[in-house]
Design a binder for these strands. Structure first.
Length: 596
DNA sequence: CCGGGTTATT
DNA sequence: AATAACC
């Protein structure tokens, strides 16, 4: 990458690199008479550099330099192919092995192509394509070169037919595309035999633990989860994988990116559902592989889709309607004596994933200065180098940090206009999202908190809210508790929900009064997709992506199991029962809509 | 045939 | 969302 950023990864240990620009630059600085080829030249002993082959000669020199640099810095040896396109470069690279390089001159292309012993040797023609071609009577590269294109089109379609015939001729116009960060992350394991649900759960949990950890390090949030299996078959000719996938509920996705290990049981619960869509556990089964995969990786939910947008001013009119309530001093003066700081979280080791060390310090929230610096939104320690990638990551780390911070600290930096009592009643992940949005520079004032909205708030009950519970320095996992104490917790949750529900009603009222003609529904949604207890108007006012998330979750609720497993749960362990009892989504946003 | 990945098609 | 095909 330091030589040239245009690098495309191929498989585990190969890369394409487009060095055109670099070559042109060097060519301007160098006389042709001073140039020579480095390494082998395909089917030649020695070639003089001229106008025609000068670029390839420079390319061969660059390749040699890079191989040398890779060896000095990493101790790794390897081959290189230098040619005018990706196909030819890959093919010619294997001419001299190991640890050597070969340049292909254009007029040797035909020779190189016809040296291939079969069509499957052409990169881009795999097993299936070879079999299809064989059925057409084509076996050699030359067969494919000479085959009438129209006949080929009948089998493969216009685009593909041209592509594979071009490949046979050594023609490949495909650009070198630097892929950037991966599109998906997966983890898999193969084995001789797995035949019980317990084994599946155990293995899946292992895979999920490692995958989730990797995902956390990546920093992005996955929105799709896939479970893949491979069944044993006698003629197990290297495939027959089956998969089922589903959206990841946002609260789970956030836990993943935050490094909250409570994500694993939630994903495990999803996995078991997906598993039952493929395997009827009432009958014997024999698996030889399990794979878990995150895809649909997104940098972070935008501020627009944030729930915080419902707490912010929509227009000057609504601003005036809302009385600015003073922040409760007794709750908010308090603190900034958190024992945790950002830099500390960043120092986390693999082993202490999700744990935080206590230190002396002040506030985890940005000061006024850091808020006004556009480049550092997050209150990361200035000592901590912020890498290219890590703006998102840091934000996620802050969230994981926050879930370990006592309530007073959270409340202390609430913007004016936010009722801390109400804020406290919100579920943790909502609080986190709100605080994240408060820290954004353009964060507007809040519309709600006016006296006419009454909220239940019995301080006595607060002891059951996890963030009020005593914090243990070694292991802080309030999120765990949030899900564990289901008995006392549900009561709290109900209250929380009714508060939030009031918020929704108030807000929709404001919109109706002042803006109903300005804002058309974001998404056209047939009534039938919305549960009966959901106000269609309120729904229509939600941001498009929130609407989409709700719809997919609602759709997920019912047809969980294709195969109804009646008594198959005799085998399930405690963890299964917990997850099963919890229902598919206990934190579902659905709950914020009026129960009816 | 392992342990990852990608894109295209339906 | 599921699968196929490719590396």
């Amino acid at each position: 990458m330091s030589y040239c950023p245009l690098v495309e990864r191929l498989g585990f240990d190969e890369n394409y690199m487009d060095v055109t620009e670099m070559v042109e630059r060097r060519l301007k600085e160098t006389r042709i008479s001073d140039l020579s080829f480095s390494g082998h030249i395909y089917k030649h002993e020695c070639v003089a550099v001229d106008e025609e082959n000068a670029r390839l000669a420079v390319g061969s020199v660059i390749a040699a330099e890079m191989r040398q640099a890779i060896f000095s810095m990493l101790g790794l040896t390897g081959c290189a192919g230098i040619a005018s396109n990706k196909l030819l470069a890959k093919l010619v690279s294997g001419t001299f092995k190991p640890n050597q390089q070969t340049t292909l001159l254009p007029y040797s292309t035909a020779e190189l192509m016809s040296s291939l012993t079969g069509l499957i040797r052409v990169p881009g023609i795999g097993y299936k394509t070879r079999e299809k071609l064989k059925a057409l009577g084509l076996v050699s590269v030359r067969d494919l070169q000479l085959f009438p294109l129209p006949d080929l089109v009948k089998e493969f379609g216009e685009v593909n037919a041209k592509r594979i015939q071009n490949l046979a001729c050594g023609i490949d116009e495909s650009p070198v595309t630097s892929a950037g960060p991966p599109q998906s992350l997966s983890d898999e394991d193969s084995f001789k035999k797995i035949s019980t649900l317990e084994e599946v759960v155990k293995k899946t949990e292992e895979l999920l633990t490692s995958l989730t950890e990797r995902m956390h390090k990546d920093g992005r949030q996955p929105h799709t989860f896939r479970l893949t299996i491979r069944r044993y078959t006698v003629t197990n000719r290297w495939f027959s994988r089956e998969s089922r996938q589903c959206p990841i509920p946002n609260h789970t996705g956030i836990k993943i990116t935050c490094g909250n290990s409570e994500a694993v049981p939630q994903l495990l619960s999803l996995s078991v559902k997906l598993f039952h869509k493929m395997v009827d556990t009432r009958e014997p089964f024999h698996l030889t592989l399990l794979n878990v995969c995150f895809s649909n990786l997104q940098a972070k939910s935008s501020s627009k889709s944030s729930i915080a947008s419902f707490f912010t001013h929509k227009s000057p009119t609504t601003t005036q309607m809302t009385s600015q309530r003073q922040v409760e001093p007794d709750l908010c003066e308090s603190v900034a004596n958190s024992q945790f700081t950002q830099a500390d979280v960043l120092h986390k080791e693999d082993k202490t994933w999700n744990s935080i060390k206590p230190i002396e310090h002040t506030s985890i929230f940005p000061t006024q200065e850091s808020q006004t610096q556009p480049t550092s939104i997050n209150p990361i320690s200035p000592m901590q180098p912020v890498s290219e990638h890590s703006r998102v990551t840091n934000m996620n780390i802050r969230e994981s940090c926050m879930s370990n911070v006592p309530e007073e600290t959270l409340c202390s930096k609430l913007p004016p206009g936010v009722d801390p009592e109400v804020f406290k009643l919100l579920p943790e992940h909502i609080q986190m999202e709100l605080i994240t949005s408060f820290q954004k520079k353009d964060s507007a004032e809040l519309i709600y908190g006016s006296a006419d909205t009454s909220f239940e708030d019995d301080p006595a009950d607060h002891s059951t809210l996890t963030f009020n519970q005593p914090r243990t320095p070694e292991r802080c996992e309030p999120a765990l508790n949030y899900c564990r104490n289901s008995a006392s917790h549900n009561h709290e949750l109900d209250k929380t929900l009714s508060s939030a529900q009031s918020t929704m009603e108030l807000h929709s009222g404001l919109i109706k009064d002042t803006e109903s003609h300005d804002i058309p529904p974001t998404t056209q949604t047939p009534q039938s997709d919305i549960p009966p207890n959901v106000d269609p108007y309120v729904f229509s006012q939600l941001p498009a992506d929130v609407q989409r998330e709700l719809l997919t979750e609602w759709k997920q609720q019912k047809p969980v199991l294709k195969i109804p497993s009646k008594h198959s749960h005799k085998t399930s362990n405690t963890k299964d029962k917990k997850n099963a009892a919890k229902g598919s989504q206990c934190n579902n946003i659905l709950k914020y809509f009026k129960p009816n």
